[in-house]
Amino acid sequence: MAGYKLLRRLEIIIHILDAYPYTSKEDLKHKLERDYELQLTNRTLERDFKALETDFSIGLQYDASKNGYVLDKQDRKRIQSFFKYVELVHLGELFKESLEDFELLREKVVLEDSAKFKGIQHIKPLLLAIKKRKAIAFVYENYTHKTLNSYKIFPLQIREYANRWYVIGVPRGEDHIRTFGLDRMQQLQSKEEVHHHLESYETQLQKFHSVVGLNYNAAEKVERVLLAVTLRQFKYLNSLPLHHSQFLAHKREDGRMELSYHVIPNYELKMQLLKMGPEIEILQPSWLRKEIKTSLQDNLKQYKHEK
């Protein structure tokens, strides 16, 4: 896998091509040198292009009519995953360089408090189990019912959402995948039992691409969700999209922007919409518009009687 310096170059190259489609090799080298003080030969640039394709499955398309390169639109999900990976590498490098001055790091780089979060130690054995298709056993705490239950699952993926880590897996003897929070897992053990047909769950895993967060119901379907958002909120959503399917559908005469999504409208999506309050209006589908309206009205009732 790519080293830190190469990762930084690849990240910059993607950013440039994302901002300036159909950039030629000469223009790309010029921007790298002028804006980032990186001097690359044609041979090095070719190796970087090859690394993007080989290590991260991100393709660059050459358009002869425009004499430039453009990112493959089909690779958008991979590009987003790549940026997340690079972000984690950057943080790791930062912490590594700051080990000799931890107090300075603690004071000047303020991260969200996750001191009480448990479960990070499970990531490595889970990744090994995924790689080897082996089962894992653990005791799982149910916060709602205040119970402890034993599970044996075949892990498929590890996912992060809202600064928490989860493992997606198939419980032994079942046909549907389930999500488990790493912070609720205890006494994790790797088992020798191997599952040879994990590919059959790929269709279920793909549904996570159609939701915000990690909650989906197999009976629900993907729908077009259309929002009218204020210009201020649009700037936030443009820099940090609510979902990877987000795109600008229309600029309205009242100054608001219409954003379109193709998602399964789950609980997490509804909570995100409610958090934006008066900055947005749900236009479609009509049932979701009514549901959010009812939630807002119920919320307002709690403030009916001033103290």
Rank of each mutant, 00 (worst) to 15 (best):
N299G: 14
R224N: 07
I13R: 01
K132L: 07
Y69I: 03
F82C: 09
V89Q: 02
L71A: 03
T144A: 13
L188F: 06
V211L: 05
I282E: 00
K152T: 15
I177P: 00
V89G: 01
I123P: 01
Y69R: 08
E253M: 04
L6M: 13
F82M: 02
T41D: 12
L248Q: 08
Q74L: 12
L7A: 06
E37T: 14
R184Y: 14
R164I: 10
T44C: 06
E97G: 00
H145G: 08
R289I: 00
Y201E: 06
L38S: 04
V89D: 05
Q121S: 13
A162M: 06
N266C: 08
H90V: 07
L188P: 00
Y4K: 06
K5C: 07
M185F: 09
P155A: 12
Q284P: 02
V86Q: 02
L52M: 14
Q80D: 04
P278Y: 08
H244M: 04
V109M: 11
N67W: 05
Y161T: 02
H145V: 03
L10S: 09
K301A: 08
I13W: 02
Q297A: 14
E46P: 00
L237M: 13
E107D: 12
Q157N: 10
Y69H: 15
R252C: 05
E199G: 05
T144R: 11
S65E: 11
L88T: 12
I158S: 05
L283N: 04
K50C: 03
V89A: 04
Y69D: 12
Y69P: 07
T147W: 11
F83T: 13
Y151N: 07
I280N: 02
E33D: 11
E202I: 03
D183S: 12
E11L: 09
H243I: 01
S295F: 05
P21L: 06
K108Q: 01
F102M: 07
H176C: 08
K235L: 11
S239N: 15
Q61Y: 04
E11A: 15
L198M: 15
